[in-house]
Structures are given as structure tokens and as C-alpha cells.
Amino acid sequence: MPASGGGTVYAITVNRTREGSYNLALVDLDEGPRMMSRIEGVESVKIGSRVQARIADLGGEPMIVFDPQGEA
């Protein structure tokens, strides 16, 4: 299935650890499937926010992450 990279945040949490905090989100892709990922550059976003996929280096591995689009 071709994916446009557009998605909507379905659920989100911020894991708070001694080493720092990072979010984990479930993102509903515009084409239907849901995936776990991170929303980059922000601590968190509201559920329902629009996000756009890009490939980032996460610990040496290329991974799909998402950037917020417009108002977070």
C-alpha cells in the first residue's frame, strides 16, 4: 500500500525516566493502518493532531517518526 506519510495521533503518552522523557504515540495513517512511533520536536501533542512521517536515525537504525503539522 503506498503511504502518503500523513497521519493523525490516536493516543499518546510521555515516558518519564531518569535519563529523560520521550513520547510514544499511536498514529493512524491516512491510508488506515495504525503504528507506534514518536512525535519529534515536542514533549507531547494533543490527540487528534495531524502529523507527517519522516525517516530518522533512532539509535543507529532508520525509523519512521512523525513531525507535528500546524497547531500541535
Binding site: A11, T13, L24, L58
Partner: peptide
């Protein structure tokens, strides 16, 4: 499909459900 994003098992999953 989840491991690379480092969810904490199992709390991340339940926190996601609570957020929804």
C-alpha cells in the same frame, strides 16, 4: 514493530489506553 521506539512494558500500553 514497537521495540525501536522503546515503550516501557507494560505501562506505555496502558498509558496510551488511558490517554485515549
Amino acid at each position: 514493530q514497537e521495540a525501536p521506539y522503546k515503550p516501557r512494558h507494560p505501562i506505555t500500553a496502558y498509558a496510551l489506553a488511558a490517554s485515549r
